[in-house]
Every structure is written in structure tokens, then in C-alpha cells.
Computed example of a mutant assay.
Amino acid sequence: MPELPEVETTCRGISPHICGVKIKQLVVRNSRLRWPVPAELTSLVQGHKLLSVTRRAKYLLLNFGHGSVIMHLGMSGSMRIVAAKTPPAKHDHVDMVFANAKVLRFTDPRRFGCVLWCEGDVHGHKLLAKLGPEPLTDEFDGERLYLRSRKRKSPVKTFIMDNAHVVGVGNIYANEALFNAGIRPTAEAGKISRPRYQRLAEEIKAVLAKAITQGGTTLKDFVGGDGKPGYFKQQLQVYGRGGEPCVACGKTLKEVKIGQRATVFCPQCQR
């Protein structure tokens, strides 16, 4: 599933090609995504200039001045820039054709993504209004995690993946940040000390920033806005490595399920 680094990579990849350019045509081949693509979307965006492309959590926001398109990649989606004459494939559901002959193509084999419209303040939309702070900003730090974690009995991995506390810490990067911080993912969130949360917040920031520079992580379907895969997979220290030796101590990595998500940790390095 594309996580924050993959969405940020997509945002940075597509923006230079389409910002400041008018949409010539909107092509919706399949409107049956997680929520139906609005029938009126064509009339709302066609002929209008795209002013900016930004990201909030795992959502891409395309601002047209009179409203915004909210896009989510779902479990298997991607958005990339293709030439206008590039024929669509089976799962290419939505095309935004721009006046400069560039096409923003939304591909989603499992159709868990979305393409929605919002008038007014997009950050007030029900999908965005209650989200926590961005992890790579000063609003997010260890003090916030420590204070919000008090009396919580859930595993710390579940806690940091909750978008109400901080957005965009998906499964892959939660595994990696907890390993770097030396914290066992099954540890009770409310029992972790302030200094350890300060270290964890630093590692969350570091692992996400590093993943963005590597273009995200491609495990199966994801490609960036330029159609290229992400290369952070080569940097993974625990995720997907259950049963293999720890890169730090050599002890066998253990894999468990937390919230039905694969969780890998070192029983010696993480406590």
C-alpha cells in the first residue's frame, strides 16, 4: 500500500508537469472506486487551470481555485504522467488531459483509491478535518507522542499508526522507526518514557525523510509520477525480513501480527 513517502514522491513527480496548465479533458473509464467518482467532476475541472498539487497525509490535493480534487492511491494505486497518445491499460481508470499534451493517469487495480471533489477549504473535508500533524513538521515531536500516549494500553506500533496522533506512519515505516529507536512494537504505549518517545519521533522523521529521497518503497504495484519504482526497499532493516538475522546483532528477527498487520522486530535490540 502506498504510504506517505510514496504519495510525497508522486506529488513531487507530477507537479512540475501540470501546475499552471488548464485541463483540456477529463476521461473517467471506471467511476466505481472506493467512492464513486462524482458525475459532475468533468464540468467542474474541464477548462480550468490547475494551481497547485499538495499532499495531506496520504491524500493528494489538486487545487483549482474554485475547489479541489482529493485523490487517494488506495491499496494498489499510482498516478503518473504519460504522453497524450499513450493507450490506456486495463486498470487505468481516470485521465486528466492537460493543454500541454501531458496526461495525469490514475491507475488502481484493486479500486480502493478515490477521486473526489471538495468546494471551499479542502482541509475541512471530512476525510481531512480530524487528521493529526504531518510527521516532518515542527508540530510533531516526542512530547506530543508522550502526552497522548498516557494510560493507553494499545501496542505502541498501533498508537503511532493512528492518524489522530500523527499522519502517514504506515506499516512499513512504523516497523523501521521502532527498530531504529530500539522499541519493541508490542510494548504498551502508555508505559514508554518521555525520552524514548523523543527518540522515536526523531526516528520517524528520519526514516520518512530517507524514504522520500529514495522515491518511496516499491513492494509490488507502486510507481512514482515518472513511472519509476521506489528504491527504499533496499534499505529496509526489519520489514519483510522475519526469520532473517538482525542487521545489528545477528539474532533471528521475529514476525508477529499486530492489528492484522505484519510486524517484524529484533527480540534482542528492541525492548
Rank of each mutant, 00 (worst) to 15 (best):
M1V: 12
M1T: 11
E3V: 07
E3M: 06
L4E: 04
E6H: 00
T10Y: 05
G20S: 11
R34H: 04
W35P: 05
T42C: 11
V45F: 02
H48L: 15
K49W: 06
L50W: 00
T54D: 11
K58P: 02
M71F: 06
G74F: 13
S76L: 09
V97Q: 11
A99P: 08
N100G: 04
A101H: 11
F106H: 00
D108M: 00
P109E: 10
R111Y: 12
G124I: 01
L128F: 05
A129M: 07
L131Q: 07
D138F: 12
F140G: 03
R144P: 08
L145C: 07
L145P: 01
L145G: 03
K151G: 11
T158E: 10
H165R: 10
N180P: 00
G182H: 05
P185F: 03
E188L: 14
A189E: 00
K191W: 04
Y197T: 08
R199P: 07
A209E: 14
Q214V: 06
G215S: 05
K220F: 09
D226I: 14
Y231S: 15
G242F: 03
E244V: 12
A248G: 13
K251L: 14
E255L: 09
V256P: 00
V264A: 01
Q270L: 13
R271A: 14
